[in-house]
Design a protein around this nucleic acid. Structure first.
Lengths: 197, 197
DNA sequence: GTCTATAAGTAGATAGAC
DNA sequence: GTCTATCTACTTATAGAC
Protein backbone atom coordinates (compact mmCIF):
# COMPACT_ATOMS: atom_id res chain seq x y z
CA UNK A 1 0.00 0.00 0.00
CA UNK A 2 1.19 3.45 -0.84
CA UNK A 3 2.21 5.70 2.02
CA UNK A 4 0.12 8.62 0.78
CA UNK A 5 -3.15 6.75 0.69
CA UNK A 6 -4.38 4.37 3.34
CA UNK A 7 -5.39 1.17 1.68
CA UNK A 8 -9.04 0.54 1.11
CA UNK A 9 -9.26 -2.21 3.66
CA UNK A 10 -8.23 0.07 6.52
CA UNK A 11 -10.40 2.92 5.31
CA UNK A 12 -13.33 0.54 5.04
CA UNK A 13 -12.89 -0.49 8.66
CA UNK A 14 -12.83 3.16 9.72
CA UNK A 15 -15.92 4.07 7.76
CA UNK A 16 -17.80 0.97 8.81
CA UNK A 17 -17.03 1.55 12.49
CA UNK A 18 -18.26 5.10 12.23
CA UNK A 19 -21.49 4.10 10.50
CA UNK A 20 -22.14 1.06 12.66
CA UNK A 21 -21.61 3.14 15.80
CA UNK A 22 -23.85 5.88 14.53
CA UNK A 23 -26.78 4.06 13.00
CA UNK A 24 -26.23 0.40 13.77
CA UNK A 25 -25.01 -2.63 11.86
CA UNK A 26 -28.32 -3.67 10.35
CA UNK A 27 -29.30 -0.22 9.20
CA UNK A 28 -25.97 0.30 7.50
CA UNK A 29 -25.85 -1.16 4.01
CA UNK A 30 -22.75 -2.09 2.12
CA UNK A 31 -23.89 0.31 -0.56
CA UNK A 32 -23.67 3.15 1.96
CA UNK A 33 -20.20 2.15 3.09
CA UNK A 34 -19.02 1.80 -0.49
CA UNK A 35 -20.40 5.21 -1.41
CA UNK A 36 -18.51 6.90 1.40
CA UNK A 37 -15.34 5.15 0.32
CA UNK A 38 -16.08 6.18 -3.25
CA UNK A 39 -15.79 2.61 -4.48
CA UNK A 40 -18.42 0.09 -5.50
CA UNK A 41 -19.97 -2.65 -3.43
CA UNK A 42 -18.14 -5.23 -5.48
CA UNK A 43 -14.82 -3.62 -4.59
CA UNK A 44 -15.73 -3.95 -0.94
CA UNK A 45 -16.33 -7.63 -1.47
CA UNK A 46 -12.79 -7.95 -2.72
CA UNK A 47 -11.53 -6.97 0.73
CA UNK A 48 -14.19 -8.58 2.90
CA UNK A 49 -15.89 -11.84 2.09
CA UNK A 50 -19.11 -10.69 3.72
CA UNK A 51 -20.70 -7.97 5.77
CA UNK A 52 -20.05 -10.15 8.80
CA UNK A 53 -16.32 -10.23 8.04
CA UNK A 54 -16.37 -6.45 8.18
CA UNK A 55 -17.92 -6.65 11.64
CA UNK A 56 -15.31 -9.15 12.76
CA UNK A 57 -12.53 -6.91 11.49
CA UNK A 58 -13.86 -3.99 13.50
CA UNK A 59 -14.20 -6.05 16.64
CA UNK A 60 -10.62 -7.25 16.37
CA UNK A 61 -9.30 -3.72 16.25
CA UNK A 62 -11.51 -2.49 19.08
CA UNK A 63 -10.62 -5.31 21.40
CA UNK A 64 -6.93 -4.53 21.27
CA UNK A 65 -6.74 -1.54 23.66
CA UNK A 66 -8.97 -3.39 26.13
CA UNK A 67 -6.51 -6.24 26.23
CA UNK A 68 -3.65 -3.85 26.90
CA UNK A 69 -5.33 -2.38 29.96
CA UNK A 70 -6.20 -5.79 31.31
CA UNK A 71 -2.68 -7.08 30.74
CA UNK A 72 -1.28 -4.14 32.70
CA UNK A 73 -3.76 -4.72 35.49
CA UNK A 74 -2.56 -8.30 35.88
CA UNK A 75 0.94 -7.12 36.81
CA UNK A 76 -0.46 -5.06 39.69
CA UNK A 77 -1.23 -6.02 43.28
CA UNK A 78 -4.94 -6.01 44.05
CA UNK A 79 -4.91 -3.19 46.55
CA UNK A 80 -7.33 -0.34 47.00
CA UNK A 81 -4.73 1.97 45.51
CA UNK A 82 -4.57 -0.21 42.42
CA UNK A 83 -8.33 -0.17 41.99
CA UNK A 84 -8.34 3.59 42.21
CA UNK A 85 -5.54 3.91 39.68
CA UNK A 86 -7.39 1.48 37.44
CA UNK A 87 -10.47 3.67 37.51
CA UNK A 88 -8.40 6.71 36.63
CA UNK A 89 -6.90 4.95 33.62
CA UNK A 90 -10.33 3.78 32.59
CA UNK A 91 -11.68 7.32 32.83
CA UNK A 92 -8.87 8.59 30.64
CA UNK A 93 -9.62 5.96 28.02
CA UNK A 94 -13.36 6.61 28.10
CA UNK A 95 -12.80 10.28 27.43
CA UNK A 96 -10.44 9.50 24.59
CA UNK A 97 -10.35 6.75 22.06
CA UNK A 98 -13.06 4.66 23.66
CA UNK A 99 -15.99 6.98 23.19
CA UNK A 100 -16.32 5.41 19.78
CA UNK A 101 -15.93 1.88 21.11
CA UNK A 102 -18.74 2.32 23.58
CA UNK A 103 -21.07 3.83 21.00
CA UNK A 104 -20.45 0.86 18.76
CA UNK A 105 -21.14 -1.65 21.52
CA UNK A 106 -24.23 0.14 22.77
CA UNK A 107 -25.67 0.56 19.32
CA UNK A 108 -25.07 -3.05 18.34
CA UNK A 109 -25.60 -5.08 21.47
CA UNK A 110 -28.40 -7.22 20.02
CA UNK A 111 -26.56 -7.66 16.74
CA UNK A 112 -23.36 -8.72 18.46
CA UNK A 113 -25.24 -11.30 20.46
CA UNK A 114 -26.42 -12.92 17.24
CA UNK A 115 -23.05 -13.02 15.54
CA UNK A 116 -21.65 -15.31 18.16
CA UNK A 117 -18.04 -15.13 17.01
CA UNK A 118 -17.72 -11.36 17.28
CA UNK A 119 -20.21 -11.00 20.10
CA UNK A 120 -18.50 -13.36 22.47
CA UNK A 121 -15.18 -11.68 21.84
CA UNK A 122 -16.67 -8.31 22.77
CA UNK A 123 -18.49 -9.64 25.80
CA UNK A 124 -15.45 -11.41 27.17
CA UNK A 125 -13.54 -8.11 27.05
CA UNK A 126 -16.30 -6.23 28.80
CA UNK A 127 -16.21 -8.81 31.56
CA UNK A 128 -12.42 -8.71 31.74
CA UNK A 129 -12.56 -4.96 32.17
CA UNK A 130 -14.81 -5.33 35.18
CA UNK A 131 -12.85 -8.13 36.81
CA UNK A 132 -9.77 -6.22 38.06
CA UNK A 133 -11.74 -4.07 40.47
CA UNK A 134 -13.78 -6.88 41.98
CA UNK A 135 -12.14 -8.34 45.07
CA UNK A 136 -12.85 -12.09 44.98
CA UNK A 137 -12.72 -12.39 48.76
CA UNK A 138 -14.87 -9.39 49.59
CA UNK A 139 -18.44 -9.72 50.72
CA UNK A 140 -21.07 -9.51 48.02
CA UNK A 141 -22.09 -5.98 48.98
CA UNK A 142 -18.56 -4.71 48.60
CA UNK A 143 -18.20 -6.43 45.25
CA UNK A 144 -21.34 -4.67 44.11
CA UNK A 145 -20.03 -1.35 45.40
CA UNK A 146 -16.89 -1.76 43.36
CA UNK A 147 -18.90 -2.53 40.28
CA UNK A 148 -21.09 0.50 40.88
CA UNK A 149 -17.94 2.55 41.19
CA UNK A 150 -17.00 1.42 37.73
CA UNK A 151 -20.44 2.39 36.49
CA UNK A 152 -20.00 5.80 38.07
CA UNK A 153 -16.83 6.36 36.10
CA UNK A 154 -18.70 5.29 33.02
CA UNK A 155 -21.53 7.75 33.71
CA UNK A 156 -19.16 10.56 34.43
CA UNK A 157 -16.93 10.24 31.42
CA UNK A 158 -19.05 9.45 28.42
CA UNK A 159 -20.65 12.28 26.51
CA UNK A 160 -24.04 10.57 25.95
CA UNK A 161 -24.24 9.45 29.57
CA UNK A 162 -23.46 12.87 30.94
CA UNK A 163 -25.97 14.39 28.55
CA UNK A 164 -28.57 12.06 30.02
CA UNK A 165 -27.57 13.01 33.53
CA UNK A 166 -27.98 16.67 32.72
CA UNK A 167 -31.44 16.08 31.30
CA UNK A 168 -32.23 14.42 34.64
CA UNK A 169 -31.69 17.76 36.29
CA UNK A 170 -28.04 17.52 37.23
CA UNK A 171 -27.08 21.15 37.05
CA UNK A 172 -23.40 20.65 36.41
CA UNK A 173 -20.93 21.03 33.62
CA UNK A 174 -19.53 17.85 32.08
CA UNK A 175 -16.27 18.59 33.87
CA UNK A 176 -17.95 18.90 37.26
CA UNK A 177 -19.76 15.65 36.60
CA UNK A 178 -16.52 13.89 35.76
CA UNK A 179 -14.94 15.06 38.99
CA UNK A 180 -17.95 14.19 41.13
CA UNK A 181 -18.31 10.78 39.51
CA UNK A 182 -14.67 9.95 40.17
CA UNK A 183 -15.14 11.15 43.72
CA UNK A 184 -18.03 8.74 44.28
CA UNK A 185 -16.29 5.97 42.38
CA UNK A 186 -13.07 6.12 44.39
CA UNK A 187 -15.12 5.90 47.55
CA UNK A 188 -17.06 2.90 46.29
CA UNK A 189 -13.96 0.90 45.41
CA UNK A 190 -12.12 1.93 48.60
CA UNK A 191 -11.51 -0.10 51.74
CA UNK A 192 -14.54 -0.96 53.84
CA UNK A 193 -14.69 -0.07 57.48
CA UNK A 194 -16.34 -3.01 59.22
CA UNK A 195 -19.84 -2.07 58.31
CA UNK A 196 -21.91 -4.69 60.00
CA UNK A 197 -19.74 -5.79 62.90
CA UNK B 1 -65.00 -8.54 19.83
CA UNK B 2 -66.15 -11.89 21.05
CA UNK B 3 -65.48 -12.76 24.70
CA UNK B 4 -63.94 -16.09 23.84
CA UNK B 5 -61.35 -14.78 21.46
CA UNK B 6 -59.25 -11.70 22.03
CA UNK B 7 -59.55 -9.50 18.99
CA UNK B 8 -56.78 -9.59 16.48
CA UNK B 9 -55.55 -6.12 17.31
CA UNK B 10 -54.76 -7.00 20.91
CA UNK B 11 -53.25 -10.33 19.98
CA UNK B 12 -51.11 -8.60 17.40
CA UNK B 13 -49.75 -6.23 20.03
CA UNK B 14 -48.91 -9.16 22.28
CA UNK B 15 -47.15 -11.10 19.56
CA UNK B 16 -45.30 -8.07 18.27
CA UNK B 17 -44.06 -7.12 21.73
CA UNK B 18 -42.78 -10.62 22.27
CA UNK B 19 -40.98 -10.74 18.94
CA UNK B 20 -39.65 -7.20 19.11
CA UNK B 21 -38.29 -7.84 22.62
CA UNK B 22 -36.75 -11.12 21.58
CA UNK B 23 -35.19 -10.37 18.21
CA UNK B 24 -35.64 -6.65 17.70
CA UNK B 25 -37.94 -4.46 15.64
CA UNK B 26 -35.97 -4.49 12.41
CA UNK B 27 -35.38 -8.20 12.39
CA UNK B 28 -39.04 -8.93 12.91
CA UNK B 29 -41.05 -8.90 9.71
CA UNK B 30 -44.77 -8.39 9.42
CA UNK B 31 -44.90 -11.76 7.71
CA UNK B 32 -43.53 -13.37 10.86
CA UNK B 33 -46.05 -11.63 13.08
CA UNK B 34 -48.89 -12.53 10.76
CA UNK B 35 -47.83 -16.16 10.70
CA UNK B 36 -47.87 -16.42 14.47
CA UNK B 37 -51.30 -14.85 14.52
CA UNK B 38 -52.36 -17.25 11.80
CA UNK B 39 -53.58 -14.44 9.57
CA UNK B 40 -52.05 -12.82 6.52
CA UNK B 41 -49.90 -9.73 6.30
CA UNK B 42 -52.73 -7.90 4.61
CA UNK B 43 -55.04 -8.64 7.52
CA UNK B 44 -52.47 -7.06 9.80
CA UNK B 45 -52.55 -3.95 7.67
CA UNK B 46 -56.26 -3.70 8.35
CA UNK B 47 -55.54 -3.17 12.03
CA UNK B 48 -52.34 -1.18 11.81
CA UNK B 49 -51.62 1.31 9.07
CA UNK B 50 -47.91 0.50 9.16
CA UNK B 51 -45.24 -1.39 11.00
CA UNK B 52 -44.50 1.83 12.84
CA UNK B 53 -48.08 2.05 14.08
CA UNK B 54 -47.60 -1.37 15.63
CA UNK B 55 -44.54 -0.04 17.44
CA UNK B 56 -46.45 2.99 18.64
CA UNK B 57 -49.26 0.77 19.93
CA UNK B 58 -46.81 -1.29 21.95
CA UNK B 59 -45.12 1.75 23.41
CA UNK B 60 -48.45 3.18 24.51
CA UNK B 61 -49.26 0.04 26.46
CA UNK B 62 -45.82 -0.24 28.04
CA UNK B 63 -45.68 3.34 29.18
CA UNK B 64 -48.84 3.00 31.22
CA UNK B 65 -47.46 1.22 34.33
CA UNK B 66 -44.50 3.61 34.41
CA UNK B 67 -46.87 6.54 34.60
CA UNK B 68 -48.74 4.94 37.46
CA UNK B 69 -45.61 4.60 39.57
CA UNK B 70 -44.54 8.16 38.84
CA UNK B 71 -48.00 9.50 39.64
CA UNK B 72 -47.91 7.73 43.00
CA UNK B 73 -44.46 9.08 43.71
CA UNK B 74 -45.66 12.62 43.20
CA UNK B 75 -48.09 12.29 46.09
CA UNK B 76 -45.25 11.37 48.45
CA UNK B 77 -42.90 13.57 50.49
CA UNK B 78 -39.34 13.43 49.25
CA UNK B 79 -37.82 11.85 52.30
CA UNK B 80 -35.21 9.16 52.59
CA UNK B 81 -37.95 6.75 53.61
CA UNK B 82 -39.85 7.55 50.43
CA UNK B 83 -36.82 6.92 48.25
CA UNK B 84 -36.29 3.57 49.90
CA UNK B 85 -39.92 2.60 49.45
CA UNK B 86 -39.70 3.75 45.84
CA UNK B 87 -36.76 1.43 45.24
CA UNK B 88 -38.66 -1.45 46.77
CA UNK B 89 -41.63 -0.87 44.48
CA UNK B 90 -39.30 -0.57 41.54
CA UNK B 91 -37.64 -3.86 42.43
CA UNK B 92 -41.02 -5.58 42.62
CA UNK B 93 -41.97 -4.28 39.19
CA UNK B 94 -38.64 -5.26 37.68
CA UNK B 95 -39.04 -8.80 38.86
CA UNK B 96 -42.58 -8.95 37.54
CA UNK B 97 -44.25 -7.42 34.56
CA UNK B 98 -41.36 -5.17 33.61
CA UNK B 99 -38.83 -7.80 32.67
CA UNK B 100 -40.47 -7.74 29.26
CA UNK B 101 -40.53 -3.95 29.11
CA UNK B 102 -36.82 -3.73 29.79
CA UNK B 103 -36.00 -6.39 27.20
CA UNK B 104 -37.98 -4.47 24.63
CA UNK B 105 -36.25 -1.19 25.42
CA UNK B 106 -32.78 -2.73 25.54
CA UNK B 107 -33.25 -4.60 22.32
CA UNK B 108 -34.64 -1.60 20.47
CA UNK B 109 -32.81 1.41 21.84
CA UNK B 110 -31.37 2.46 18.48
CA UNK B 111 -34.67 1.81 16.71
CA UNK B 112 -36.63 3.82 19.22
CA UNK B 113 -34.28 6.76 18.83
CA UNK B 114 -35.05 6.87 15.14
CA UNK B 115 -38.81 6.68 15.42
CA UNK B 116 -38.93 9.96 17.28
CA UNK B 117 -42.58 9.77 18.28
CA UNK B 118 -42.33 6.45 20.09
CA UNK B 119 -38.72 6.92 21.17
CA UNK B 120 -39.24 10.20 22.94
CA UNK B 121 -42.23 8.80 24.76
CA UNK B 122 -40.13 5.91 26.05
CA UNK B 123 -37.18 8.09 26.96
CA UNK B 124 -39.28 10.59 28.84
CA UNK B 125 -40.62 7.76 30.99
CA UNK B 126 -37.17 6.41 31.72
CA UNK B 127 -36.13 9.84 32.89
CA UNK B 128 -39.30 10.28 34.94
CA UNK B 129 -38.57 6.98 36.68
CA UNK B 130 -35.15 8.27 37.76
CA UNK B 131 -36.35 11.67 38.87
CA UNK B 132 -38.16 10.76 42.13
CA UNK B 133 -35.03 9.52 43.85
CA UNK B 134 -32.84 12.46 42.95
CA UNK B 135 -32.89 15.17 45.60
CA UNK B 136 -32.74 18.48 43.72
CA UNK B 137 -31.02 20.25 46.62
CA UNK B 138 -28.43 17.58 47.37
CA UNK B 139 -24.82 17.95 46.39
CA UNK B 140 -23.86 16.43 43.07
CA UNK B 141 -22.12 13.48 44.71
CA UNK B 142 -25.23 12.53 46.63
CA UNK B 143 -27.37 12.84 43.52
CA UNK B 144 -25.02 10.45 41.80
CA UNK B 145 -25.15 8.06 44.73
CA UNK B 146 -28.93 7.99 44.51
CA UNK B 147 -28.78 7.26 40.81
CA UNK B 148 -26.27 4.49 41.41
CA UNK B 149 -28.63 3.08 43.99
CA UNK B 150 -31.27 2.85 41.32
CA UNK B 151 -28.80 1.10 39.05
CA UNK B 152 -28.02 -1.35 41.83
CA UNK B 153 -31.69 -2.28 42.05
CA UNK B 154 -31.72 -2.71 38.32
CA UNK B 155 -28.66 -4.98 38.44
CA UNK B 156 -30.04 -7.01 41.28
CA UNK B 157 -33.49 -7.65 39.91
CA UNK B 158 -33.25 -8.31 36.21
CA UNK B 159 -32.50 -11.81 35.06
CA UNK B 160 -30.03 -10.85 32.30
CA UNK B 161 -28.18 -8.44 34.57
CA UNK B 162 -27.80 -10.94 37.35
CA UNK B 163 -26.64 -13.55 34.87
CA UNK B 164 -23.92 -11.12 33.83
CA UNK B 165 -22.96 -10.50 37.43
CA UNK B 166 -22.59 -14.20 38.02
CA UNK B 167 -20.36 -14.58 35.00
CA UNK B 168 -18.24 -11.86 36.58
CA UNK B 169 -17.53 -14.23 39.43
CA UNK B 170 -20.23 -13.24 41.86
CA UNK B 171 -20.77 -16.51 43.59
CA UNK B 172 -24.30 -15.93 44.70
CA UNK B 173 -27.77 -17.09 43.89
CA UNK B 174 -30.08 -14.63 42.15
CA UNK B 175 -31.93 -14.26 45.43
CA UNK B 176 -28.78 -13.40 47.37
CA UNK B 177 -27.89 -10.88 44.69
CA UNK B 178 -31.28 -9.25 44.93
CA UNK B 179 -30.94 -8.88 48.68
CA UNK B 180 -27.37 -7.59 48.52
CA UNK B 181 -28.23 -5.14 45.75
CA UNK B 182 -31.14 -3.73 47.71
CA UNK B 183 -28.84 -3.48 50.71
CA UNK B 184 -26.34 -1.38 48.79
CA UNK B 185 -29.09 0.59 47.07
CA UNK B 186 -30.84 1.60 50.28
CA UNK B 187 -27.56 2.82 51.65
CA UNK B 188 -26.83 4.85 48.54
CA UNK B 189 -30.16 6.67 48.60
CA UNK B 190 -30.08 7.16 52.36
CA UNK B 191 -29.19 10.29 54.30
CA UNK B 192 -25.59 11.41 54.20
CA UNK B 193 -23.62 11.80 57.33
CA UNK B 194 -21.30 14.74 56.83
CA UNK B 195 -18.75 12.82 54.89
CA UNK B 196 -16.00 15.31 54.30
CA UNK B 197 -16.30 17.57 57.33
C1' DG C 1 -62.23 -8.52 8.37
C1' DT C 2 -59.63 -11.44 5.73
C1' DC C 3 -57.97 -13.06 1.48
C1' DT C 4 -54.84 -13.43 -3.20
C1' DA C 5 -51.82 -11.19 -6.03
C1' DT C 6 -48.55 -8.03 -6.95
C1' DA C 7 -46.08 -3.72 -6.99
C1' DA C 8 -41.80 -1.38 -5.94
C1' DG C 9 -37.81 -1.24 -3.59
C1' DT C 10 -33.52 -2.79 -1.23
C1' DA C 11 -30.63 -6.04 0.79
C1' DG C 12 -26.32 -9.17 0.48
C1' DA C 13 -23.72 -11.53 -2.70
C1' DT C 14 -21.52 -13.23 -7.29
C1' DA C 15 -19.63 -13.49 -12.30
C1' DG C 16 -16.67 -11.95 -15.24
C1' DA C 17 -14.50 -7.91 -17.92
C1' DC C 18 -10.66 -4.74 -17.44
C1' DG D 1 -8.12 -3.92 -7.18
C1' DT D 2 -11.94 -2.11 -9.09
C1' DC D 3 -15.58 -2.08 -12.30
C1' DT D 4 -20.62 -3.20 -14.54
C1' DA D 5 -24.30 -6.08 -14.46
C1' DT D 6 -27.06 -9.28 -12.46
C1' DC D 7 -29.13 -12.86 -9.20
C1' DT D 8 -31.85 -14.22 -5.42
C1' DA D 9 -34.27 -13.33 -1.52
C1' DC D 10 -36.35 -10.80 1.02
C1' DT D 11 -38.95 -6.37 2.72
C1' DT D 12 -43.09 -2.91 3.34
C1' DA D 13 -47.10 -1.74 1.28
C1' DT D 14 -51.30 -1.57 -1.89
C1' DA D 15 -55.38 -3.03 -4.96
C1' DG D 16 -59.24 -5.30 -5.26
C1' DA D 17 -62.05 -9.81 -4.78
C1' DC D 18 -64.90 -12.23 -1.35
Amino acid sequence: MSPRQADTRQRALDVALELFAEQGYEKTSLREIAERLDVTKAALYYHFASKEALLAGIVDRLVEPADELVTWSQTQPRTTEFRQEYLRRLAALLQGQWSRWISFVQQNQPTLRDHTEAGQKMQSRLLLLCAPIIEPDAVLQDQLRSLLGLLAVYLGNLAPASAMLRSLGFEATPEELTVAAMDVALELVGERTSRRS
